[in-house]
């Protein structure tokens, strides 16, 4: 087990190193930030001073090594725009994005699994067909459009929910969170649902497929032959086997929840990393872009690692195989 984790850790380090190279080269090949920061009429010496200050006069590979050295010290450069450390800017906004992503994940599980299992167990009922049509809509409607519609219906027309911002936040372990206040909850409801829609649909499909398959498996039939109550057959025997693919996929999708929150955050003016990166892209704020991408890579790698570990907890067959290594 531990050998397995160490191996996975080493792989992760290699992935992060490779990504840092790609990200850095990619970002430094596009555009010229100096034009954004300095008015074209500025004197030549002024422009050169700024270029030197930003370290943009050095060769790219030197810039990269410099970047790596600093990155290892937790310094991903200063935002050209804000003049503050890029990492700090991102970390400040991270809790908002993570809160949104977690809320969406929770919704995907809480709505997706029961609906999917229901549709899998009773595939011929009208309600099941409605659920499945709904999930197709969830897949195919563009997130930003659904977001706008939600705002129009629930904020503008009905006036039930606020349309922008995080609302009232409280401090939890030094992080600002919305979900502990009523006002915050009202604020997070729409954006979280908007972000979750795609994942709910995904989980519905996965759970339904899993449930349909499981209902015909011998061990589920055997569970019935043992005289177990239907509730236990479904909640334990069917569910435990569905959880393996669902957890794996959801875990991997959590990264994309964070990445895709860009759209939702923009629509709902949610003050998270997504909004920051959109602004940074507008201004070609390289350090912020690089820092954002590096953080996202790190998040993906960590999530993958955790999914692997969780997977081995859920599926005893994986656990044993690794113990033997």
């Amino acid at each position: 087990m531990s050998a397995f984790i160490i191996r996975r850790l080493l792989q992760s380090v290699v992935v992060v190193a490779l990504m840092s190279l790609l990200v850095f080269v990619g970002v430094n090949v596009v555009g010229d930030p100096v034009h954004m920061l300095v008015s074209p009429e500025a004197p030549q010496e002024e422009i050169e001073r700024i270029i030197r200050n930003l370290g943009l006069d050095r060769p790219v590979h030197e810039q990269y090594l410099f970047f790596v050295k600093n990155a290892l010290n937790g310094d991903l450069g200063r935002s050209f725009v804000f003049g503050e450390p890029a990492l700090k800017l991102i970390i400040q906004r991270m809790p908002a994005t993570f809160e949104l992503a977690f809320a969406a994940l929770l919704m995907a599980i809480v709505f997706g699994i029961p609906l999917g299992i229901y549709a899998g167990i009773y595939p011929d009922r009208v309600s099941s067909k409605l659920i499945m049509s709904g999930s197709i809509l969830g897949f195919s409607l563009p997130t930003f459009w659904v977001g706008l519609m939600m705002i129009m219906v629930f904020a503008v027309m009905l006036g039930w929910l606020p349309s922008t911002g995080r609302g009232e936040t409280v401090s939890l372990l030094g992080l600002k969170v919305s979900f502990l206040t009523i006002d915050g909850l009202r604020h997070i409801l729409m954006p979280a649902l908007n972000l979750a829609l795609l994942k709910i649909s995904l989980v519905i499909r996965l759970s339904r497929a899993g449930a349909r398959e499981a209902m015909h498996l011998d061990y589920v039939k055997f569970a019935r032959a043992k005289g177990l109550r239907e509730s236990r057959v479904v909640m334990v025997h069917v569910m435990k086997n569905i959880m393996i693919p669902v957890v794996t996929v959801l875990g991997l999708e959590f990264g994309s929840l964070i990445a895709f929150s860009v759209v939702t955050e923009t629509v709902f003016a949610w003050p998270g990393m997504g909004k920051l990166i959109i602004d940074a892209l507008h201004n070609l704020d390289r350090p912020v872009i690089v820092a954002y991408l590096m953080i996202i890579v790190l998040v993906f790698v960590i999530i993958n690692l955790m999914v692997d570990i969780l997977y081995s907890i859920l599926d005893p067959r994986v656990r044993i195989k690794d113990a033997g290594r």
Partner: peptide
């Protein structure tokens, strides 16, 4: 009680 035909499939692998 019934004992099923295929022993490889009658027990739930994750319990």
């Amino acid at each position: 009680a019934m004992i099923f035909q295929d022993p490889m499939m009658t027990l739930n692998p994750v319990l």
